[in-house]
Amino acid sequence: MIKIAELSKSFGKLNALKNISMELLGGQLTALIGPNGSGKTTLIKSILSLVKPTSGRIEIQGKNIGNDDNYRTSIGYMPQIGRFPDHIKVYQIFDLLKNIRKIPDHMLDEDLYLEFNINSFRDKAMGTLSGGMRQKVNAAIAFLFNPRILILDEPTSGLDPISSEILKNKISTENKKGKLVILSSHILSDIDEITTHVAYMQEGNLIFNGSFEDLQLKSNEIKLGKAIAYLMRSQQSNITQ
């Protein structure tokens, strides 16, 4: 679904992505993991064309993303901080996005909208919402248009445990329907059960990219957190060698 070839990105002297190649397929739930500044967000933004790569290519469903904006119809994105204009009302955001995507109402996926009970605060202005409420709106938007690819940046941060659980279930359900989910998160225990693949990044390099099972075998750990710790340690020993 997504094919990344020799992707590099530098911001001035800083090399945020160093020659990254990877392929992500439908039905995968890839946990994108790495310390702060490892290039996760840059990678996600590159896929969304928010960041223009210095070199390399990104193909989505076989098409180079270049200057075409339409490929993003197949992507649902949930940013880490989703801020909206203060005086826009919740229902207006949905209205606006429906207007942009132009997808008929019966094809919309309103599960999260209903489960988060967004209807109860649809008339509130975005500026008056709490952080958690805003995240709910963001999550509902990402899933609303039934996209084949879901990119979720720290989806559960700021959500209460119940809502967090609702979201995780939703992610899992959609993933099992064959959708590609790319998920970046710090709280690794959260995504243990749902992750199928792991991409580990450090200082702009893609250190590991493969199935969770492979990683579990390689590291001899069951928990995602421990497996990642193994990757970090082996990385450090590589450097010292």
């Binding site: 064309s49 928010l50 993003r72 119809t73 989703g82 963001n138």
Partner: peptide, 17 residues
């Protein structure tokens, strides 16, 4: 500057810069 995050969000939609 205040609309920056909103612009980012909108840019993730299929709409041109």
């Amino acid at each position: 500057y205040n609309s920056y995050e909103f612009i980012e969000l909108m840019l993730a939609q299929p709409i041109s810069r």
